[in-house]
Design a protein around this nucleic acid. Sequence first.
RNA 1: AGAGAGGUGGCAGAGUGGUCGAAUGCGACGGAUUCGAAAUCCGUUAUACCUGCAAGGGUAUCGGGGGUUCGAAUCCCCCCCUCUCUGCCA
Length: 425
Amino acid sequence: MLQVSVLKEQTDRVLAGLAKRNFPNADAEVQRILGLDQRRRQLQTEHDSAQAEANKLAQQIGGLMKSGDKAGAETLKARTAELKGQTKAAAEELTQVEKDLQDALYRIPNVPHESVPNGRTPEENEVVREWGAKPELPADAQPHWELIKKLDIIDFELGNKITGAGFPVYKGQGARLQRALINFFLEQALDAGYTEIQPPILINEASGYGTGQLPDKEGQMYHATADDLYLIPTAEVPITNLYRDEIIPAERLPIRNTGYTPCFRREAGSWGAHVRGLNRLHQFDKVEIVQIARPEDSYAALDGMVAHIEGLLQQLNLPYRVLRLCGGDMGFTSALTFDLEVWSAAQQRWLEVSSASNFETYQANRLKLRYRDENNKTQLLHTLNGSALALPRIVAALLENNQQADGTIKLPEVLHRYCGFQQLG
RNA sequence: AGAGAGGUGGCAGAGUGGUCGAAUGCGACGGAUUCGAAAUCCGUUAUACCUGCAAGGGUAUCGGGGGUUCGAAUCCCCCCCUCUCUGCCA
């Protein structure tokens, strides 16, 4: 969430940013928050001064009791009772105001970076660059959902039997290709200086709030209600929450972590014509990269992450393009997001395989994730993350783009040593 | 899962109703001493919020929440977690 101080001191910038997101009623919401904050401070002052007097009286009463002055003590107690009523009333309203304030802040999305283009729909995202040539396919080329059936490497029917729709079973070369991709991605991240993390894939409620999945994306996560835990939608959640409530020593910055996890998304209401095959799943595999950086370094870090992801796609020889998301298409918590899309030759469309974002202090504020600056003052850090990469659509593009006339699939050379084979089929 | 013990500052560890935000030790930082270092000595060493131009002042926090009391780290209730033993188990 945003800091009240930012809303107060940079109101115009915030409002301009929210307009870029087409966020309704921004002005009224911000004014309401500033009003609540003012009331909060007022109540805090009232509470504190009443409590301060009560604390003093309690000491005096202690002294009187010791010296045996019962009557004097009783007199002071009467005054104490009065103060108690005051502190209690102030504390109760304070709790309510703080809750209202927090709820209101939770509803305000992050302020977009100045480079974020205007726009409401994905069509208005800015294409930053394109790489690679779209392949020429054989005449009888097929989409990946036909190829996987023919090759018998990914089985939706079986997944349907044991779990349900959107939980495919990877078999034989399909399973080995998954493992190979995961290893390739992890090794590449290690080479780039990231530290590998294996986090839990169930998280508690506090972690969900920390990175912003809760409260607004409640319905997107699978909820294990018996233990009140959530299945992670991305490794971002546990890996970033590692640093919740921490003050990081400056010399440890930036923190660069990577991790492979399965990811679980309910994707409620998002099933349509374009979600066949591997295009959208309830469970999928992903290697994530996460950075925690000083504010002044975070945009360079974001560029570095995008460059790293591009390097992966180039080694896989997948044509891709980099998009700078417009205000209307950006995630709630992000200040700037680059999406990377690969060309799916048989479907003749771009598939999103990665999203890299800088959240600035939006997550860090919830996480209470800080460091000490040169003046020894605690400051919020910036958090960033990106997929490097999500597997299913990579597999879809690899299959479609590399299908041969004889029905086999040629795999990019970089994967051979990880797979133990050079082609599928 | 059952029984027992316990959760205190960066760490270790005292504190069982009053001047305790908390002894002491270690660590860290600053200074003295030294040619320099070790040792020694002196000092500093949490976070958030309120107030103030500032210096400062105030409030809260001893796993979390609630309660008793003029006053709670200390007493009571609920929850969470850790350790030991027993059981179960990859």
